[in-house]
Write a protein that binds this DNA or RNA. Structure first.
Lengths: 333, 333
DNA sequence: TTGAAAGCGCTAACAG
DNA sequence: CTGTTAGCGCTTTCAA
């Protein structure tokens, strides 16, 4: 003879509350009075109650889960967006699932799977390219999605204008009187990720040309995101017959490499060499790095907010947001 | 996301029968008239109907989930452990769920609910205290768990010896010839988190006393983790009649504050002031900070590995790991 | 052979 | 903060 597992009903009876309350202490503990919660928990313990996953799944209309699909999960700039996301999610009833991508195959896998496997309510796609087929599948399966650093007509998005960022930097540096400049960007990026570096370069180059100080080949260094390579590249620049007076690194992390190289050569910054970064991650403040702020935290925060908005009311319109870019003056320029 | 898979209701409607009949062709085909059965089967095909229970059972089968319960989710040292975790999880079939804790109540809530509502298969608890009741509940509900930076007889754990770290630092600094030293640690930490800072101080103080250069009150500064406060504290030290020759900050982040203060005063590091950190986060390398390495990445990596090991084979023994501590010499000492 | 209707254990909308 | 009540998708009576 089988003894039936205890149900939420016996727990409710045991604790002297309604089944709703029991359900709530399991799914939204903060919405239950502390004492009640303890009573229920005690009853649960005593009865060795284990909720039947299938029954919950059946009754549940949604999962209250938001997924974040992201490359370089632990790179500072991504972490900072994550911080924004995490901050708003923490106050909510949603769980945060991280899908870290490190290969094209993996990205494809997630994009195929996520909209169909139905385990999340909403998806934030960070700095990852979407093909039309993917977009259609996501839309057809009604998976609420927002794109960060990318866009597609089907979805809301949050971006910055990278080209403008390049121009802005050029103008700022020009305004400070620098003429001979160099650019350090990313190269050999994996095929699954986006390449904002190229756009920043375009804008930078454009503005420089317009000002009559074109950026020639030897002053452009594209390297894999790797500290040593950046240092080497900087040395290459500095060994040029006419070394640059200022270097624009397309990310703060790369700017650190430039700074390191300068330090090793006992160069004064910014007197001997000005250094400009991009992103304004916490590190930039720590190192007193002059950089372009792209509101990373805000980007993350807003992305979840928009997503949650549509989750609670799917009729809300798609939004395409362009975040502002601002130069943060510190001491390396 | 709202469920949009077809249900037996749809199928019933499509085939022009009742849900009972549909249910029967699925579960007791012989009790259904052949023609009716064919009609129903056709409708099932057309709608790509998959019984819900099966679907979720299958989904559940090939998609396991590991939760990470953590405070300060986006603080560099935690991120670095996360990186280790993420690295090994990425190749696996597990999903990573992040439970960010920022209050005692929240911690309690998670600890109460996680073991009961079976939404995860395994749990990593980072730098968070466990009470006996929690530990029992987790064990009784058979939720595989590993503790990072804490321990309890029921579970595997990964830790470092913070007191030893303090001693190690003291001895290193002593060996370098420094005598007048100061310590910057954390204070006013929230009640839900651990306080490794205190142990590091103990060890530091001990070793110093033993060497005959005791650390007196004025040379100990405990502050909330906040850049400005650290800078102020450093200034306080530096304004002492006998300012310290070396400052040991109990985390790299705080060491940055010390460095900032030194820079503002135009002090040469390490000539005028030596600075020592703790953690060895990426930042330490960027800033050439001498520090104590505590293998953060490794700690994360190992924690998941052990957890996964037990998930696939629950008979595997509990492991209690002590990670080694090593001084990384750079240029601030 | 079939269908109406009553659960299964749980969640959620809505009052109070 | 808590309870009432109406589902969720499906199976199982029980009549017809």
């Amino acid at each position: 003879m089988k003894r039936r597992d205890p149900t939420i009903y016996q727990v409710a009876e045991g604790a002297g509350v309604s089944i709703t309350t029991v359900s709530r202490v399991l799914n939204a503990p903060h919405r239950v009075n502390e004492d009640t919660r303890k009573k229920v928990l005690k009853a649960i313990e005593e009865l060795h109650f284990v909720p039947k996953a299938e029954a919950s799944a059946r009754a549940r209309k949604d999962f209250k889960r938001i997924g974040v699909l992201t490359p370089y999960f632990t790179e500072p700039s991504f972490v900072q967006r994550m911080r924004g996301i995490s901050n708003v999610m923490m106050g909510s009833e949603y769980e945060l699932i991280v899908y870290a991508v490190e290969s094209l195959a993996q990205l494809r896998g997630y994009l195929d799977m996520l909209p169909i496997s139905r385990r999340i309510d909403g998806l934030i796609i960070m700095s990852l390219p979407l093909r039309n087929g993917d977009a259609e599948r996501i839309r057809d399966n009604h998976l609420q999605t927002i794109l960060v650093e990318y866009n597609h007509p089907f979805f809301s998005s949050i971006e910055i204008d990278n080209e403008y960022g390049g121009r802005l930097t050029a103008e700022y540096l020009l305004g400070k009187g620098y003429r001979r400049m160099a650019f350090i960007g990313e190269a050999g990026e994996p095929p699954y990720s986006l390449h904002p570096s190229a756009f920043r370069l375009t804008g930078f180059q454009q503005a420089l040309s317009k000002a009559g100080v074109p950026l020639t080949e030897e002053y452009i260094g594209l390297n894999p995101l790797n500290m040593e390579r950046v240092i080497e590249q900087t040395n290459l620049f500095l060994d040029l017959p006419e070394p640059p007076e200022a270097i624009f690194a397309c990310s703060d992390i790369q700017a650190v490499g430039v700074l390191k190289a300068a330090r090793r050569r006992n160069l004064r910054v910014p007197e001997d060499l000005a250094v400009m970064g991009f992103d304004n991650i916490d590190l930039a403040d720590y190192m007193e790095l002059t950089t372009v702020d792209q509101s990373l935290d805000e980007s993350g925060r807003t992305s979840v907010e928009i997503l949650m908005g549509r989750l609670t009311d799917p009729t809300r319109p798609i939004q395409n947001i362009k975040l502002q870019l601002n130069i943060v003056e510190r001491s390396t320029v």
